[in-house]
């Protein structure tokens, strides 16, 4: 979580952040078991579109990447690749306790313990898995953060790029691999 709350935007960035907050497109990428709570949030009962959020197919078009649940090392490679294909300003919202401290897979050799070491997270939504009401609450919080200029994860990633890369390579070895079955 990025704790820097200083607001140093100029007036164009404030207007731009107003637009970014009210129209967030999520990358349609279901990384873990928390993704089962996304379809109810998107469809008629809880209706995410009221907040201006909607799904988009590719990382180039998307604003927010949802890490829904545990993250195995295999998936982490793809998530890092997708995150670097996204266009700034980009946000990451992490669902579930697996992203905070490992959750119920805290002692697994194949999943990561803390997402914060590898990718900059703007908002955590705790729970195992969080229900749609919690998710909508969290998204409203994200909208407020973006309007106030507090969702600066992407800037933090650019400024501390070497630190993030070192953590990623320490855990994964290589990010872009040649052959999956003989890694």
């Amino acid at each position: 979580m990025v704790l820097d709350k200083k607001d140093d935007r100029n007036v164009w960035e404030k207007i731009g952040d107003y637009f970014s907050a009210n129209s967030i497109w999520m990358k349609w990428y279901c990384t873990g078991c928390g993704a089962i709570e996304m379809p109810p949030t998107m469809t008629s009962r809880f209706d995410m579109e009221r907040l201006g959020m909607g799904p988009m197919a590719t990382p180039r078009q998307a604003d927010v990447l949802l890490i829904t649940g545990y993250l195995s090392t295999k998936t982490l490679r793809r998530v890092i690749y997708s995150y670097e294909q996204m266009n700034s300003p980009r946000f990451i919202v992490a669902f579930g306790s697996c992203t905070i401290n490992g959750g119920i897979y805290y002692d697994s050799y194949a999943t990561i313990g803390r997402l914060d070491k590898y990718l900059p997270v703007d908002l955590y939504i705790s729970g195992c898995m969080p229900r749609p009401e919690t998710i909508m609450n969290g998204f409203s919080g994200l909208i407020e953060m973006i309007k106030k200029g507090e969702a600066k994860g992407w800037k933090h990633y650019q400024e501390n790029y070497e630190w993030y890369k070192k953590n990623q390579l320490d855990s994964l070895g290589k990010i872009i691999i040649e052959d999956e079955f003989h890694e």
């Binding site: 731009g16 970014s20 604003d63 700034s88």
Partner: peptide
């Protein structure tokens, strides 16, 4: 306007 505001590749 949000799309126009973002960076692009």
């Amino acid at each position: 306007f949000k799309a126009l505001r973002k960076d692009s590749t």
